[in-house]
Simulated scan of single mutants.
Amino acid sequence: MSSNGTAPAYRRLSVDERRTQLLVHALGLFAHRPPDEVSLDDVAASAGVSRPLVYRYFPGGKQQLYEVALRSAADQLKQCFAEPCTGPLTTRLSRALDRYLLFVDEHDAGFKALLQGGSVVETSRTNAIVDEVRRHAAEEIYAHLNPAYGPSGPGPRLRMAVRTWIAAVEAASLIWLDEGKQPALEELRDRLVQQFVAVLVTTAAGDPDVARLTRKALHVEKRDGPVGQLARSVLPVVEGAAHLL
């Protein structure tokens, strides 16, 4: 009842509004439960509508609903890597990882089921959507490393390094979920940033082009930032290896 004692006027949702409503509820369920454990009845109950109504807007059933929800989640993940190409590289990367890891934290069960595979709703289309996110992340990182690539784009060694690191981020995210979300997100983020720097430096050792852009990137890093912390922690470990030079 409203404040004047009358019942609030009923407003019929438009097609787009109803579809969006159902999608929001489906995303909430898929975020915290594996897709195999979510039924159309669950989505209908969450949205407060009937099962036939869900079918009206998603005639392909749960498979269609899952793919649409996955596309929406993928678009959110892609936005995690949108970052202005200014300031130290590790600062930009840290902000992107903060957004990415927050998504993992808020969509734990869904993220885990998505990357581990084996779901009955997994198809070539769902796999393609996930791979699209990986490729988008790689392209964003290439742009941050060197916005002035020639027509051929980044070389094969750099592409291998970046895509390998992205795979490591996914693996670390899954392990973090398996370990009860330990360590703290900030510590996990810093480890991943330092790992990226280590991969980049290792790649630079065998590729003059990567060495050039790595020197340029490291030149603007701050002493109290991730690179400085990494250098100070690594030097004591390798100081006994001078005989290898």
Rank of each mutant, 00 (worst) to 15 (best):
R134G: 01
V130N: 00
S124Q: 13
E140P: 02
A198K: 05
Q195W: 08
A198R: 03
A171K: 13
E140L: 12
P156W: 11
V201N: 04
G180A: 01
L174I: 14
A161R: 07
S152G: 14
D178T: 10
R125Y: 13
P183E: 03
W176Q: 00
G150M: 08
H144F: 01
P183Y: 09
N146F: 08
A161I: 10
E186H: 15
W165I: 03
H136P: 04
Q194F: 04
L192F: 07
N146D: 15
L145G: 02
W176V: 07
Q182I: 00
Y142W: 15
A143Y: 13
F196M: 08
I129K: 01
H136Q: 07
M160I: 05
P147R: 08
G153S: 06
A172F: 01
L145M: 14
T203H: 03
S124G: 10
Y142L: 06
L177C: 08
A184Y: 04
Q195C: 09
H136I: 00
A128N: 03
L145F: 02
L145I: 08
A148N: 13
R191S: 12
Y149V: 07
S152K: 10
A184M: 10
R125H: 11
V120F: 08
E170G: 03
H136L: 00
A143T: 11
L177I: 11
G180W: 07
I166G: 01
V162P: 01
V133A: 07
R157M: 07
N127I: 11
A172H: 02
V201D: 04
R135I: 07
V121P: 00
R163P: 04
G180T: 00
E187S: 14
A143M: 15
W176S: 04
L174Y: 01
Q182M: 09
G180I: 09
E187P: 01
E170S: 08
E132R: 01
A198V: 10
V120Y: 07
F196W: 10
Q195Y: 11
Y142T: 01
M160T: 10
A167P: 00
T126I: 09
A184S: 11
A128P: 03
E170H: 15
L177P: 10
A128R: 10
V193M: 06
R163D: 12
Q182G: 09
H144S: 07
E186N: 09
P183V: 05
V133T: 09
V121Q: 11
H136W: 11
S173C: 08
V199H: 12
A167L: 14
V193C: 14
T203Q: 01
